[in-house]
Design a protein around this nucleic acid. Structure first.
Lengths: 151, 151
DNA sequence: TCAAAGGGGACCTTTTGGGTCCGGATTGCA
DNA sequence: TGCAATCCGGACCCAAAAGGTCCCCTTTGA
């Protein structure tokens, strides 16, 4: 249903905890602090480290450290780190040979502006805006939300 | 990976075909015209009919008819019709009792502005913009697209 | 030298998306 | 009046991906 993976959700929670505590935190410590199972937290942190959002420090007294303040980390970066590149359809930017109805498909390549719009929207939101519990009251729903049939 | 279902893709193709041909089209006819398997097309059309985007005419000489021009149908409507409501996370607008770490989770309810932003972006794009093959050249990438690591 | 921690996989389980099929209801046409 | 075409609403099944766990190796401070 057009949703991000749970890992993205976890990542935001873990990042939030990392910034709240400050300094170097261990994976088990973050697990108990967030209530997420430890192996899962470890996996999330590994992925975040590979994307350069956190830094892993090995050895005894090691742990993970935030590399950038969450106010400068766009939500899209976290999503890309956890879920891979943001593309709403399988036909991304004109790949060939994958779609059998390639010659008849009138939609080829036309999803690009849609992807761009989504990326833009997610790049405008910083992780700190959804992570900080006692944060400044953000103007909720800056974008006009049309009235959908709430299923 | 933050993508819509194939059904949404199919729906856009079918709607496009429906508008291109005009009048009443049968499900088998649309299937052969689009290259999509017939049962799948039928399923897509059923869902579109339930959402009021097309109308099903029963009996012999029946078929499906477009109810509104695609230029007035927002892409978000199609996505909602096929994939259900647009909500990036499971915790939608403060549901209770589902998340075990409910009391410790610092992110509760804070995804709402994100959802709103996505909805807004998808509501601004009309189906005709991605459906029509010889359409007017739309200003691609109206939103600044940050440079991601293309995986 | 040892223990605490991250690194990088392989592996398994569950969910769900994607697709097919069937019987029933409706309606135009011969 | 019967028949055939067509939509309607499910149930059902399969495969792929997500979600989660575990193991062993490397690194490093005490």
């Amino acid at each position: 249903m057009l949703r991000v993976s749970k890992f993205t959700d976890y990542a935001v929670v873990v990042l939030s905890r990392l910034e709240a505590e400050g300094g170097v935190q261990t994976a088990p410590g973050l697990a108990s602090g967030t209530g997420i199972a430890e192996p899962t937290v470890a996996k999330v942190l590994k992925m975040l480290a590979q994307s350069g959002l956190v830094e892993g420090l090995r050895g005894a007294r090691g742990g993970y450290r935030l590399l950038r303040p969450l106010a400068s980390v766009a939500l899209s970066e976290v999503i890309v780190a956890m879920d891979g590149p943001i593309a709403l359809t399988a036909c991304v930017d004109g790949g060939f040979g994958l779609c059998e109805a390639e010659h008849t498909c009138p939609v080829r390549g036309r999803w690009d502006p849609v992807n761009a719009a989504i990326r833009g929207a997610l790049s405008a939101i910083m992780v700190s805006e959804i992570a900080s519990p006692p944060a400044a009251p953000r103007t909720a729903a800056a974008t006009p939300m049309p009235a959908y049939a709430a299923e």
